[in-house]
Amino acid sequence: MRRRSLLLAAPVGLLSLAGCGDDSSGSDRGSPSAGTESPSSPPKATIVSGPLPEVTAGTGFGQKPTVAKGTGKPSGNLAVRTLIPGSGTAVGAGTFPQVNYLGQIWSTGKVFDNSYDRGRPSVFQIGVSQVIQGWDQGLVGKKEGSRVELAIPPELGYGEDGRPESGIQGTDTLVFVVDIVHVFTEKDAAKGRTVRQSDPALPRVGTKSDGRPPSITVPRADPPKKLVADYVIEGDGPKVKETDGVLVQYRGLLWDGGKEFDSSYAGGRPTALYLQRVGVKGWAQGLTGKKVGSRVLLVVPPSLGYGKDGYQGVPGNATLVYSVDILALL
């Protein structure tokens, strides 16, 4: 089980974006993207340049930092400073930055969370209240390749209740150092080794990696009775576990007639979802074991899709065809 990140702002966020997969109280019944939120507009914080504690070691981008304890009284505003400027894509509301980070308490210097020791960056959606507001507002506009330091007052962190189980009191200002490794946008796509599609009885999926919806051609034949989960492009990232969350781009078509009924491309951004919470069981079974960076053809029989009742835009007993680009683990 992967440790829950402390960045998540509320119990609902912990449930949907914690990556632990230990919630069994239902699933996202609709499309695989069910539950994805649109950018919201929380109250605007005043952003100042300091004070901020000194980073005393691990000062290079990607290095685990050591940060001094805060001295004096922290600002009541959101303090943000770019320690290392990047030149890549800027973080925007609704984008998914991939980051390494370390968080500690201003007054004590106690580290309460860091991704460096977990061995891989984390991915969060910014600007939709899925993380604490200090992140939602302090990281917008910062570019890929940047290292950013933030001092976040309680009202933009965990509020007056704090997180006592993590040693965070309701009066604590939080200090973060954040390395923005990548910013996932609608332009991201699978990249890897193209795998030959030689079975004429299966749909053919386009292999262009230009961020546009890939073509899907469904044959005029009876659909397979069992789940199909085949590589179209095989990436070289880690394998997806059944308890993982994934960041994906996808299209969904009906086998009968080839009509598109669902697509993340239509929303203009990738979709974050957790395999144990997706209503289409064929996703959980088909993507488990596949590598990050891959494009996968899923052919989902009714028993692993929407069954005899169907769902919005999907008739009962429909076989579903998906192209899924696995961009990252959450």
Rank of each mutant, 00 (worst) to 15 (best):
A45S: 13
S40L: 14
A57N: 14
P43E: 14
L15Y: 05
L14R: 04
S31N: 04
L52M: 15
I47R: 11
V12H: 03
G30E: 02
T36I: 08
P53L: 14
A9G: 01
V55T: 08
V55Q: 08
P39I: 11
L6M: 05
K44I: 11
S41K: 14
A45E: 07
L8G: 02
P43N: 11
R29A: 05
G26D: 09
S41N: 11
G26P: 10
E37V: 08
G50H: 13
S5D: 06
A45D: 06
E54F: 14
G26R: 04
L15R: 05
A10G: 03
L6P: 01
L17N: 00
L14V: 04
I47P: 07
E37T: 00
D23C: 14
V12F: 01
P51M: 14
G30M: 00
L15S: 05
A10D: 05
G21L: 06
S49M: 11
P53D: 15
G58L: 13
D22A: 08
D23F: 15
S31E: 09
G13W: 05
G35W: 02
L17S: 06
P43W: 15
P53N: 15
L15F: 00
D22P: 00
E54A: 15
E54D: 15
P32S: 06
S41V: 15
S25Y: 08
D22Q: 11
G35L: 01
G21K: 04
E54V: 15
E37Q: 01
T36P: 00
G13D: 06
T46G: 08
P43D: 14
K44L: 13
A10P: 01
A10C: 07
G58S: 14
D28Q: 02
G26M: 06
G21W: 03
T56C: 12
A45H: 06
P53F: 14
G58R: 11
P32I: 07
A57K: 14
L52I: 15
S40M: 13
P51R: 15
L8Q: 00
D28P: 01
L15H: 02
T36H: 05
G13Y: 02
I47N: 08
R29D: 07
P11Q: 10
S24N: 08
S5Y: 04
P11C: 09
P11I: 10
K44D: 10
S5H: 03
T56H: 09
P39F: 09
T46I: 15
L52G: 04
S38K: 10
S5N: 04
C20D: 10
A34E: 12
S31M: 09
G30W: 01
L14H: 06
P42G: 11
P43Y: 15
S16Y: 06
E37C: 00
L17E: 04
T46W: 10
G26K: 02
E37P: 02
G21S: 04
G50M: 12
T36M: 09
G19H: 01
V12G: 05
T56I: 15
P51S: 13
A34Y: 02
S31T: 08
L7E: 04
G30H: 06
I47W: 08
S41P: 06
